[in-house]
């Protein structure tokens, strides 16, 4: 991306304006590629040469010139450019999240993901192709998302999302049930909704119709 300067006649006034801007933020042009758009400036070759020199005195390096008439450019002047497009803010191209989440057409054999380390606060583990088994704990502020079931052999203190690939049969099991949020197949309950049921105890969570059921893990 380059900055475009479009001088308008009279050029001396325009330069004064530029100086005022440069005074407000002296480092504004340093290291920035600048393109000169001169279609509105009505300049001849000498005028253009003088303008480029003036700009270079102000540490503005012109890397190309757009909108120059035929024969105007030549030795000592920056090369012509064409086809530049104005941009607003550059928005990062969004990957379609659905593409990532979608289940493959022919269901591959479900694979499970086994984590030997605890899932720490702030970490997200996403595994949509099958179950996730966590040998340690899932910390408060951590998030584990499985396409299938979720097995936590330590304490479940974070967010547990099972059946995320559209599987109402998925379950969540853990040895110590203290989650911030649980969800199966899109249905979720926060810790507040859940109340004290099985809190701190081994538990399993599953869907019965449209209701999330928490039960003791025998």
């Amino acid at each position: 991306m380059a900055l475009v300067l479009a001088p308008v006649p009279p050029v001396s006034d325009w330069l004064a304006e530029l100086d005022a801007l440069a005074k407000r933020s002296p480092a504004f042009f340093v290291g920035r590629p600048v393109i000169l758009e001169i279609s509105g400036a009505a300049l001849d070759r000498e005028g253009l040469r003088a303008l480029v020199a003036e700009l270079s005195d102000r540490s503005v390096t012109v890397m190309g010139i757009e909108g120059a008439g035929p024969g105007l450019l030549g030795d000592g002047l920056p090369p012509p450019l064409a086809g530049g497009r104005p941009v607003e803010e550059v928005a990062a191209p969004e990957e379609a999240p659905e593409a990532r989440v979608s289940v493959s057409q022919a269901p591959a054999p479900a694979r499970s993901l086994i984590l030997d380390a605890p899932v720490r606060s702030g970490q997200t583990v996403l595994h949509l192709d099958g179950d996730i088994t966590v040998m340690g704990s899932v910390a408060s502020g951590a998030e584990v998302i499985a396409g299938g079931s979720l097995h936590v052999y330590g304490a479940l203190r974070g967010r547990a999302i099972a059946g995320a690939a559209g599987n109402p049969e998925a379950r969540i099991t853990c040895r110590k049930f203290e989650p911030e949020l649980i969800a199966i197949d899109g249905l979720y309950r926060t810790a507040d909704d859940l109340g004290p049921v099985q809190r701190g105890l081994p538990a399993q969570v599953r869907l019965e119709g449209d209701a999330i059921k928490v039960a003791a893990l025998e």
């Binding site: 380390a117 720490r120 606060s121 702030g122 970490q123 910390a139 408060s140 502020g141 951590a142």
Partner: peptide, 16 residues
Amino acid sequence: EVSSVRDSDRIIGLLD
């Protein structure tokens, strides 16, 4: 205390 412990947990994740 809880806030300090959770922040430490986060830092441990970054250390790893």
